[in-house]
Amino acid sequence: MTAPLGKDLLALEPLTPEQIRLILDTAEPFKEISERAIKKVPTLRGSTIVNLFFEASTRTRISFEFAEKRLSADTVNVGASGSSVTKGETLVDTARNLEAMRIDMVVIRHSASGAAQFLAERIESNVINAGDGTHEHPTQGLLDLLTLRDHFGTLEGRRVCICGDVLHSRVARSNIWGLKKLGAQVGVCGPRSLLPNAVSELGVEVFDRIEAAIEWAEALNVLRLQLERMQGGYIPSLREYNRVFGVTRERLERAPRDILILHPGPMNRGVEIDSDVADGPHSVILEQVTNGVAVRMAVLYLLAGGPPELAEAAKGGSDR
């Protein structure tokens, strides 16, 4: 049967709301597997998955690897250093060589926007985008949606503000599309030098002041401020960024309601987010990480052609 998502998961922008809901609904039964003593089901037994990570990653790479292993797939990790990429091999040649060894899926993280799509158009295997340049990071977007849905029940009409370096953030783009498709209102807040010039055409509310964003929002997704942005001249200093845009306890205490705090990690404590907030009662940052494994299991399962209605049953066939 054809997979309900198609061959690949490259971005959230082209997905329908039904496809996004399908992934989130499929993730629900997979959550429980990670809570077991023996965290393994045979669903993808015999499948071979290559994790091609051309950019540094801890959370996403390990999360994918756990998701694959808990579904009993055989996995191989390839990084840029120590592979033939350092000898000048092209991305497509690397992938075609891997494919010649009969693999089923490729999970790719790459510094160039469009790299995942480029690969997907040129190989037969399923391709999952684990972050391409400043374009999208769809599984991060999905796990953020799942975490918000866990708390809000539905995203319809909810107000979520994405704070920080939207210009360079693939997490921001995936969040904007995903949230809008599920009916949420989306805001963005940050210095204008870190927002796309055409940001309002993305169909989001734009806040110049973090105080206004906090007054409006029911949840904040606080983006990591990459240190190289300061060297690139986009902002004068991390210190001033924290003073003007930092999500601090003082600012949240003035909010008219409790605000859910998300962060895709890794955090710069004391820059975009204060420790009081990151470790505070409304932080769901670690829940995001937990949900990441379930969401990725759902994506792997669906792309492999697993029928959605059998996800519940699939976990039943555990090795327990």
Partner: peptide, 15 residues
């Protein structure tokens, strides 16, 4: 070109 397409694709635009 810098605009909505560059913003969506995550490619650096030239104003």
């Amino acid at each position: 070109n810098e605009g909505i397409v560059s913003a969506r694709l995550g490619l650096k635009g030239i104003p």
